[in-house]
């Protein structure tokens, strides 16, 4: 899941300084689940914006809407009626949702209300941890289900480094576990420790972001109706 966190409210005020009629748009999927941008946070941000304007002596209108997902055009279209009279949208979706809205509503400023942090999962209620960096070439089969790309601070493929002590990473021993310690421990449990003697060659980053903006297509996907007709 995509993990996001709300921007400091001062930043949202700064971004919306000129706005008169704001829509705070929530997303019902990842950011709802990670407590950053669902219907509840939409109401909270909207309340804060109204109060901030009122206390600054500015007259503004703030409305609220949350859709299923801001990363699908069909859902995004459903926002159109809520945009009547609106001059600024604060989206509490991840960076993908913000861009989808910007593309769909060309004449409106779409402002990000959250910072998109990483791909992760809750480590406990209210705390999330990075688990994947979308490198595009999954090697979890070789590393006992622990990702050295996302979870080793140095993305080492032949670890651990000298900064690993008592199972913790030197970058932040309080919070970060040494991914390589986890890999070794788990490989040992699986009886595969000897496999780690093989040296993994330098990584090919072309499947990651270094290869440029990525696109992926499913060959077996049936095109949507309109596109299907074009290709007939």
């Amino acid at each position: 899941m995509i993990i996001a966190e709300q921007k400091p409210f001062e930043r949202i005020v700064e971004m919306t300084a000129k706005a008169r009629n704001i829509l705070v748009a929530g997303c019902g999927t990842c950011v709802t689940v990670c407590l950053a941008g669902g219907a509840k946070e939409v109401a909270v941000v909207a309340s804060k914006l109204r109060l901030a304007a009122q206390n600054a002596g500015r007259k503004i209108t703030v409305t609220e809407a949350t859709i299923e997902r801001q990363c699908e055009n069909e859902f995004v279209e459903k926002l159109a009626p809520a945009l009547k009279g609106v001059d600024t949208v604060v989206s509490l979706a991840c960076g993908i949702g913000v861009q989808f809205l910007a593309e769909a509503f060309q004449n409106l400023p779409i402002l990000p209300g959250v910072n998109t942090r990483f791909l992760g999962a809750p480590s406990k209620q209210g705390t999330w941890q990075e688990k994947c960096m979308a490198c595009g070439d999954c090697r979890l089969d070789k590393t006992a289900g622990v990702c050295p790309m996302a979870r080793c601070s140095k993305n080492l493929l032949n670890g651990p480094c000298g900064g690993s002590a008592n199972g913790k990473c030197e970058v932040n021993p309080q919070k970060i576990e040494c991914a390589w310690q986890l890999i070794i421990d788990r490989m040992e449990k699986l009886g595969r420790l000897d496999e780690l003697e093989a040296i993994t060659p330098p990584n090919d980053w072309s499947t990651a972001h270094d290869g440029g903006v990525r696109e992926t297509a499913s060959e077996q996907a049936v095109p949507a109706k309109t596109e299907a007709m074009k290709s007939v």
Binding site: P8, F9, E10, V13, K48, L51, A52, Q54, N55, A56
Partner: peptide
């Protein structure tokens, strides 16, 4: 902690 930013 957040109220001052709202002017409260």
């Amino acid at each position: 902690k957040n109220l001052p930013a709202i002017g409260i």
